[in-house]
């Protein structure tokens, strides 16, 4: 089958819209992974929780905006629980997230009453749908911008600064009177709220929620965060401020979906997509490390030493 380049171009708007929706999710991952320095795996569960909550509430007659707010709240509750497992019960961060993620799998099945739930844009008034792609682009972009501005504001407040300090140096934070456990719980709630909201948007965009829609989402979120970081620091260097960093997280998500679009266009089997994702993330995670080591490795030292002989 011949590859038609126009097919790839035609798929770009859809991939950009997906990238923007996942950009919100990635900002949530950014909050825990980068700001709080907490590897939170809850998101694989809370993303689907958000999708399930939004779809089921809309099917039950809620308005779409109210359902989306509820999705945020339910996601925040999940993050809150992860925070309690970690701070009150002393369970390590990764394990707290995994426990919550597995618990949410059952919760999500219960919310949907099954493995998936369809919702038609013809019967319900949805916020966003892939049927109306131009509108979807505008709406997802607006959501991203609002989330960015709110994050910029919040992490500039006293409480936001306390969360950043907690992530940067817990010992110093305690000595400055910051209740670091409370800050962790708040940040996890905000992060998972954003993730669930992104899930709520995606389920409307694609017209259904699915128990597996969040599977591997942490990796996609990380991919966006890291692609954005590498790209942003390459372009802006030390002038990267918080707003630019947030913007690049979203750009990272868009790039990720464009690359996925390219891979699909190249007719790579969809079964290999996750493998491909893992490779992209590994490559981008490795770039800063390899760059830092360039010319400073033992092998380089040995070569230089040999030259001087």
């Amino acid at each position: 089958m011949a590859l038609n380049f126009m097919d790839f171009v035609g798929a770009i708007p859809g991939n950009v819209a997906l990238g923007l929706i996942w950009g919100i999710m990635a900002i949530g991952v950014f909050v825990t992974f980068k700001i709080l320095n907490f590897a939170d795996l809850t998101v694989d569960g809370s993303f689907a929780t958000g999708g399930a909550t939004a779809v089921v509430l809309i099917l039950n007659g809620w308005s779409a905006p109210a359902a989306l707010l509820a999705a945020f709240a339910v996601g925040a509750l999940a993050g809150f629980c992860t925070g309690l497992l970690h701070t009150m019960l002393g369970i390590p961060d990764i394990l707290s997230g995994i426990l919550m993620q597995i618990a949410l799998y059952s919760v999500n099945l219960n919310i949907m009453g099954g493995a998936n739930k369809a919702i038609s844009v013809d019967q319900y008034k949805l916020i966003i749908s892939q049927r109306y792609l131009n509108m979807a682009l505008i709406i997802s972009l607006s959501f991203v911008l609002v989330v960015m501005v709110l994050c910029y504001w919040y992490f500039g407040t006293e409480q936001g600064c306390a969360i950043r300090a907690t992530g940067s140096n817990p010992a110093m934070s305690r000595a400055q009177g910051i209740n670091i456990n409370a800050m962790k719980v708040i940040a996890l709630a905000i992060s998972n709220g954003l993730v669930a909201m992104a899930g709520g948007l995606l389920s409307q965009f694609q017209g259904y929620s699915d128990i597996n829609m969040g599977r591997g989402s942490i990796v996609i979120g990380l991919a966006a965060v890291i692609i954005g970081e590498v790209l942003g620091s390459a372009i802006f260097g030390k002038r990267m401020n918080f707003m630019i960093r947030l913007a690049f997280v979203t750009i990272g998500a868009i790039i990720y979906y464009l690359v996925i679009g390219l891979v699909l266009w190249l007719q790579m089997p969809t079964d290999d997509l996750k493998l491909f994702t893992a490779i992209i993330v590994a490559v981008f995670l490795a770039i800063p490390y390899i760059k830092g080591k360039a010319g400073h490795s033992f092998a380089a030292a040995a070569r230089k030493g040999a030259k001087n002989d």
Binding site: C161, M172, Q176
Partner: peptide
């Protein structure tokens, strides 16, 4: 004693608020 990822003035501002509630006023 200091948060490495934060600016000098941000560190000082954190310390200036020691023992006070940290709300939604500017950091």
């Amino acid at each position: 004693g200091t948060a490495a990822d934060m600016e000098i003035e941000e560190n000082l501002a954190l310390a200036a608020r020691r023992g006070r509630g940290r709300g939604l006023g500017w950091g």
